[in-house]
């Protein structure tokens, strides 16, 4: 490479700059001033300020998380209360429904029994009427039969039979 000639340090040149001892005192003095100033700035201003910001953020996040947890617990509680109310209402509704059903059943049964009794009574009355009517009809039939028999006999023999004989004969026939 052609750089050798250029980087060569001629004999008259001062030594390598970082090893020039006459510059050390100035550098040290300014280093001490600069570093002390830096230390004071960092310890007094930068660290409290940034540390404060970070602490404020951490506490804010912590507070927000606690608030969120509190709200979550609250909503959980509300949900539980709602579920309980729902279960209660359901139970009440069921009780009400079964009670109503029983009451209606009982009522229906009662009505049915009453109706049945009424109907039975009516049926009995009707049967009695029928029996009476039948008896009456039967009596009428007997009278008609006696009269008819007397008339027939009169026609056949020309004389009217004794009423008592005809009645006995008809009674015998009806019995027979």
């Amino acid at each position: 490479m052609a750089t050798g000639a250029h980087t060569e340090v001629p004999g008259g040149k001062p030594p390598f700059p970082p090893f020039q001892k006459e510059t050390f005192a100035s550098q040290l003095v300014w280093f001490v001033i600069a570093f002390v100033a830096l230390y004071v700035i960092i310890a007094r201003f930068a660290i409290p300020q940034i540390g404060g910001i970070l602490a404020a953020r951490a506490s804010r996040i912590e507070g927000d998380l606690a608030e969120a947890n509190r709200l979550k617990a609250q909503s959980d509680e509300a949900l539980k209360a709602y579920e309980k109310a729902l279960a209660d209402a359901r139970g009440r509704a069921q009780a009400l429904a079964s009670e109503t059903r029983e009451r209606l059943n009982a009522q229906a049964e009662e009505t049915r029994k009453k109706l049945e009794a009424e109907l039975n009574a009516k049926l009995a009355a009707a049967e009695k009427t029928i029996a009476a009517t039948k008896t009456a009809a039967m009596t009428n039939v007997r009278g008609i039969a006696v009269e008819t028999a007397a008339a027939i006999v009169e026609r056949l023999i020309g004389t009217a039979p004794a009423g008592k004989a005809v009645e006995d004969a008809v009674t015998d026939v009806l019995k027979g």
């Binding site: 510059t23 005192a25 100035s26 550098q27 300014w30 280093f31 600069a34």
Partner: peptide
């Protein structure tokens, strides 16, 4: 004791950090 380019850049460094 002199104010040198090194001192200047130390000052710039400190001011920059601040």
């Amino acid at each position: 004791i002199a104010f040198t380019n090194s001192a200047l850049f130390m000052a710039i460094t400190v001011v920059g950090i601040a």
